[in-house]
Design a protein around this nucleic acid. Structure first.
Lengths: 237, 237
DNA sequence: ATCTGTTATCTGTGATCACAGTACCAGCCC
DNA sequence: GGGCTGGTACTGTGATCACAGATAACAGAT
């Protein structure tokens, strides 16, 4: 019978409003659409999204659990402003976890994983040519997570994801003030080293390469912050 | 003036219902008060806690973000049943993170930290004598986190906390079926090794000692699960 | 003119209500 | 008697309402 040979309809996924709101805000956060220090009010977001306050309220509270958003003493919700010390601390945590994920990836990646990593790296290269800064950030994230997928350690991988979101607003402002050229230049070398180490099954080398990549980001942020502080001091004097 | 010398009143902390509900459920989860596989319904919890459904609803959703609770396709919320594979995976993640925290603690602990670690270890010893299994679990947790506090890395420390909560229900049932004596015996040696390594500033040794402790837990769980499965098979045949 | 006390507006919180989807169970037909 | 079908009770979701706390602008007093 014709009808029985037809593929079964794939089940429609049933997104609650709350989940959609949660994801939307989270994405915009990771992409730097919200500025550090900005206060998010439930009613305003609800008006923008065209929902009642209820789904927004739950989404914001969920984001505070991940420490992606701050809960002020007045219970209002704000995009955190990362001090350079805090940013460095998060980068230290990232070096430990992501370094280990890269190490595991070098040990465990199968052919499909390697293909995905290559594809992600290729797309990243294409984004570099396109000179679209937002796209570049996005493809960089996808490249990193292609590697972490290959580690086959979902627990750890899910744990670093919020760290990326937390860094989103700050890295975006850094990115914005620095201009895309410098980022592009500095992001080239570490990526190649990681891919080669993983393909060659050199676990320790892959770990070190990822750590070097994150350290570069961290130091870039510190340097930029010092420069900004020096400018402030000069302006104040 | 007398009045100006008086210490300023410490601000009263202002717990919302939702926060209280969240913490209460979380604690009960970590202490094994809920069984794996149990379904938590909003209205029943609200009735038990004497609140409306609203605070419970938000608390449960927050717990699903940490993956402390599972969201079933019907959107009901359930205490996850950890397969032995998943439990092992979580333990692998814990070894990496907690091992590094112990390493950092050995490098960074100051005198106050060391005093707190000793105190926690002492309380743990007292709990062993008291033969109260629940107290023993709680003091074990406090001992571990006294060490992780000393690492001065709040980002990483906050990240492992949910892992402990996730393991809570499963370890409690293991604990329950195994009897307190075996746990007590096996928990003795690693603790002393960790403390001595930290006091002696031997970072790598502290890391290895914590890893050994977690590995012992992991293997104990695996062994117990295999035995339970063998029993099931015999009963089924 | 500055400081203080008040008021008006706004924000988050919690309760209640209405609705849609699910699960469970009894009763019916084969 | 077993499998299907129908209904009923229940669950989570989202909207609306009521309220308490906070902020900020304003008016009054010193």
């Amino acid at each position: 019978m014709e009808i029985s040979r037809r593929k079964p309809l794939e089940p429609i996924r049933h997104n609650t409003l709350q989940q959609q709101v949660y994801r939307r805000i989270r994405e915009n956060l990771a992409d730097g659409q919200f500025k550090p220090g900005e206060i998010l009010t439930i009613r305003e977001l609800a008006a923008q999204l065209g929902t009642s306050v209820m789904p927004v309220r739950e989404a914001l509270h969920k984001l505070t659990v991940e420490q992606v958003l701050d809960l002020t003493p007045n219970r209002s919700v704000r995009v955190p402003t990362l001090t350079p010390e805090k940013f460095a601390e998060i980068c230290d945590a990232r070096m430990i976890i992501e370094g280990n994920l890269a190490r595991l990836a070098a040990q465990r990646a199968d052919d499909a994983d390697l293909a995905r990593i290559d594809a992600a790296n290729h797309e990243f290269g294409a984004a570099k040519v396109a000179r679209d800064p937002m796209l570049l950030l996005q493809k960089n994230r996808e490249f990193h997570f292609a590697i972490y997928e290959a580690a086959h350690q979902p627990t750890l991988m899910n744990m670093i994801e919020p760290l990326w979101v937390r860094c989103g607003p700050s890295t975006f402002t850094l990115f914005d003030e620095l201009g895309p050229e410098q980022i592009r230049k500095s992001a080239t070398n570490p990526h190649r080293a990681v891919v080669e180490a993983i393909r060659g099954r050199r676990a320790a080398e892959a770990q070190q390469a990822i750590i070097a990549d994150i350290r570069a980001t961290s130091e870039r942020y510190q340097k930029h912050f010092e420069k900004a502080r020096a400018l402030d001091r000069r302006a104040g004097a």
